[in-house]
Amino acid sequence: MTNNGNGKIKPKMTFWEKLYFPEIIHGMTITMKAMFRPKFTRQYPEERWNPPPVFRGRPVLVVEDETGVERCVACGLCARVCPSLAIQVQAAETELDKERYPELFEINMLRCIFCGFCEEVCPEEAIIMSKDFELTFSEPKDAIFGKDKLLIPRSQLEDRLEFLKQYR
């Protein structure tokens, strides 16, 4: 590269490069080789991605497999910390040891920004981020996930729980 004085940088080329055609053929061999490289495309609906545990998908509530009871004690910290005010919790009393449980737990998935603050603040490790990222709704009211969609058995969430144990 040489500077020819008027601010433009002109690359210095050898005679072979100035002929241009040899370099075109060189470039064409590169693209020809590229045609036989393995492809990056993932055939989405058939081939699905299994995200690593660090991935923050939609937040879910952990249900213990043995008892079938959710871990949540309805303290409301997640609702309090949520920056986009997506979580709504209504507590009620229960005869179980934990004494309180969420009568109503709703996450508005249109508001959720997947920040993971709810998971971080939860004292019971009851709300955690899952691997589920395929969220589509045809109506805004479908986007409000109640307990029916949020309660996920613990056995399906081992990856993330393990990750939380290790790195937090």
């Binding site: 045609m35 490289r37 393995p38 990056f40």
Partner: peptide, 10 residues
């Protein structure tokens, strides 16, 4: 197809 194959796509 050719453009896709040259760019590692299908």
């Amino acid at each position: 197809k050719i453009s896709a194959y040259m760019q590692d796509r299908i």
